[in-house]
Write a protein that binds this DNA or RNA. Structure first.
Lengths: 237, 237
DNA sequence: ACCTGAACACCGTTCAAGT
DNA sequence: ACCTGAACACCGTTCAAGT
């Protein structure tokens, strides 16, 4: 009963090894990260996923750091920039954008960590920068100050995601929290009067949403009230 | 002419392998870092330095993360806390302490990075926290807000050291700066009007001392002007 | 031009066995 | 209790050789 027609589909069972491309590599890398964490996104593991050898990846990616940067750029396209053009108070809209950015990194803390070191420079990142500049302009922040401010805001958001996220998923997260809590509780009122007075409850009190929103508020208020130091001349270099 | 007295000093030439202690391990680790960078502070490299096997270190140190934390704690004892009790404007004194803290991490950026993940909890760190709480109190910041503020300030200082320091010494530092500069310069005025208007000069303008001092000023101003959100009740949990 | 296997020079951590 | 060698299960990156 073997029908005469040879199956049109490829000889192999697997959906035909797709050609290697930079884009395909980055996509696979994001998938592996999603499934197994950034720790597992190694050249070797990724090559295995793509059914090739690790050396082959070096045709498309210079090194591991560059791979991480490319992954981040892909994720940054998901930042919700709609508040930039929405109506309403510019501060609230700015906080919304910052929250969207932070939330994306929050669940990929290891990637946030790499963003701290290898600064992204793709179009998705530039769009976020542009959006924040627009919001600061809405708030009347002078352009020169905005240039510094956008960096400050994104840097803070990135590093917070790194810190919080990794701590949440660290193997000894509990141990470390305990270590700090024990240290704080054991702080003698003689040596550390203020720490003792506040107690661990206050000092460890949730880095929850309230606290991050407060921190964004601090930054925005501070930016509004702190001019850049005067340059020697008013004309640019 | 061989004198009859056998030399009193030990049989071996080397100054007698010192007994392994936690303290000795951490000291050696700091030395290796100073000389070869944190990347080289591995269990194996460190064991070699101490003339033993890597497995032996695990008697004194739980894992690599704990080792890094111990190294950081040792360095934090060098933070200059004298401005805490000096005369003068509390803001200036606070900025001095923050600068001292940042400067120490600045030249050991990889360690700063680990501090972002594994929060220190030794006495040296607690002293820094206590000092900053005292300064904030001098400035009239309410205690509850100070508890959040000290975290915000130290977090920012730590992450800035991470970012700047590593960028300075990264292998492709120039490449990355170039990448961002090229991206910024290439930003079309249609898609990215504000980036194009500012230009790369403004956006990349020095993360020098001026800028960090400005950022500290932003934080302090913001902290003074941003109350913590009201808890449901005024009494603690 | 792209892809590969094999090699080089490393890692952290565990564990049974010694002292 | 402390220390060790050896093993396990990995890494990133390079390079000569193939197609």
């Amino acid at each position: 009963m073997a029908s005469s027609a040879r199956p049109v589909v490829s000889r192999r069972e697997r959906p035909a090894k797709p050609a290697l491309t930079r884009e395909g590599i980055v996509t696979a890398a994001v998938e592996v990260m999603q499934a197994e964490g950034l720790d597992r996104v190694t050249m070797r593991r990724l090559a295995e996923q793509l059914d090739t050898g690790a050396a082959s990846l070096y045709v498309y990616v210079r090194n591991t750091a560059e791979l991480h940067a490319a992954m981040l750029e892909e994720l940054l396209s998901q930042v919700d920039l709609s508040p930039v053009t929405a109506p309403g108070d510019w501060r609230d809209r700015l906080i919304k954008v910052l929250w969207s950015y932070t939330a994306i990194l929050f669940v990929r803390p290891a990637l946030a960590q790499s963003a701290l070191v290898t600064r992204p420079s793709g179009p998705a990142y530039l769009s976020v920068v542009e959006g924040i500049l627009a919001l600061l302009s809405d708030g009347g922040v002078p352009p020169g100050r905005s240039a510094w401010a956008v960096d400050l805001l994104l840097h803070f958001a990135t590093s917070t995601a790194t810190e919080q996220g990794i701590r949440d998923q660290a193997v000894d997260a509990e141990d470390e929290q305990d270590a700090l809590a024990v240290a704080l509780r054991g702080a003698s009122p003689e040596s550390f009067p203020r720490i003792a007075a506040l107690g661990p409850e206050e000092l460890l009190s949730g880095w929850g949403p309230d606290r991050l929103t407060w921190a964004f508020g601090v930054l925005i208020h501070g930016i509004l009230g702190t001019p850049r130091p005067e340059p020697d001349t008013t004309t640019g270099a």
